[in-house]
Design a protein around this nucleic acid. Structure first.
Lengths: 228, 228
DNA sequence: AGCCCTCTTGACGTGATCTTGACGTCATCA
DNA sequence: TGATGACGTCAAGATCACGTCAAGAGGGCT
């Protein structure tokens, strides 16, 4: 079943869209703001994302950019703003389509279908995260260093890298990392994180003892900093 | 260079679009009607098609349908018609985007860029995969070694090779391989993979004990590495 | 029936990976 | 200045995963 993530801060619109999409047989996740959207996208891997531009907190365009660091999922923008510059910004940030409110539900659904159709043919879009030191290909499960040599990661190392990289620039708590990689019963074993982060840094950081990409936030967790 | 085909019956619009696109570095073909459009598309293989709906002769929607019988080229519809049914028809006929006249040139260009971006990731698979040690012909179900002698693979071996080779460079998980080749009930039988990978390597790898093409990713799966 | 090819299954050695505990370092705070 | 807490580092044993071999079962062909 096709999974759609809808991001909008107005509960009625959220509800209305969800109802319509569910009625058409879609599996729908909803998020009221950018943070929740990025988090849900990472965890649920939707096939299409519908995002409103006027969000509290992280801006809609930044949500698009955040998604585009690691996924090619089709993004349809909803917006009340008609100015051309808004449209151009959103599209150039990586959106696939831009629909101006008020919009017809039939049109939106047709645009969702168009996005789906494309996604099937191109299938695994580029899920690639690049830094100046290494490139992480999430679809191929491959890491390549700047000098084009492949980097070997163990399953646990890879899993950890994957979780961090899917939340670029954002803090991921120790709890969340441990739960995601080792399971709910290991939430206290922060030891593991230290050991594995060290290994990951040794393999990926240009200067493992002065990390630039995998940053420690003492007492809280770790953060992947794409840094361009 | 990106080639764009613009289809519109109004000469001024055609000229205007062409001028703008050429100024942005696009290679532009123009067609005044549906027949010419289909003909040009077939001969010149554009990377993006911009088509007006109100055409003399063949209708715009039929142009879309005609194109879609043989190509997945991104199609952007221009139209003065605002009715939702028109949009839905065009999108469901296979259009990727629908822009209502009057439109801003900046927006249209941004939408063209969005289409281009998407198209890059979707190139269709080769039926023949070559390495310096062997050649796999997926269509003919044949493998030929570098010395032109045919390699005999058993059905199971072939199936496994096929799955791996269809995802060059990608990691394919043990689960996925087992499910694909032996069926969903065999997802745990990693034994089979070990036995068969060994056989495949004995038949295809120049140095079976030091695999170069069929790589093991311990704990995760296997990867076919075309390697030039 | 007998033969041959293929698939399944189990056992074993080897090497990689995970786990675990100990210790060093650094920053903070009393 | 010394105590504390959090983190990084290291090493060693236990465990797991893989490659390899070989024997037996099944099935189709002559």
């Amino acid at each position: 079943m096709t999974r759609v993530l809808v991001v909008d801060d107005e509960p009625q619109i959220l509800r209305g869209l969800k109802t319509n999409l569910v009625a058409r047989g879609y599996d729908v996740d909803t998020a009221p703001d950018g943070e929740a959207a990025l988090d849900l996208a990472a965890r649920r891997r939707p096939d299409v994302v519908i995002v409103d531009l006027g969000l509290p907190g992280i801006d809609g365009v930044d949500v698009i950019r955040g998604l585009r660091t690691w996924t090619a999922v089709p993004i349809i923008v909803l917006s009340a703003r008609e100015q051309e510059s808004e449209k151009v910004n959103a599209l150039d940030a990586g959106a696939d389509d831009y629909v101006t409110k008020p919009f017809g539900m039939g049109e939106l659904l047709a645009r969702v279908r168009a996005s789906e159709r494309r996604a099937v043919s191109s299938d695994d879009g580029e899920a690639v995260v690049r830094t100046s030191a290494f490139t992480v290909d999430l679809a191929a499960r491959k890491v390549v260093a700047a000098d084009r040599t492949a980097v070997r990661l163990t399953p646990t190392e890879w899993h950890l890298v994957e979780v961090l990289v899917r939340h670029p620039g954002r803090l991921v708590s120790q709890r969340q990392l441990l739960q995601e990689v080792w399971g709910p019963r290991y939430e206290e074993e922060t030891n593991y994180l230290r050991v594995y982060m060290a290994q990951i840094r040794r393999k990926l950081e240009p200067e493992p003892s002065h990390p630039r990409y995998f940053i420690t936030e003492p007492g809280m967790g770790y953060r992947f900093e794409p840094g361009d």
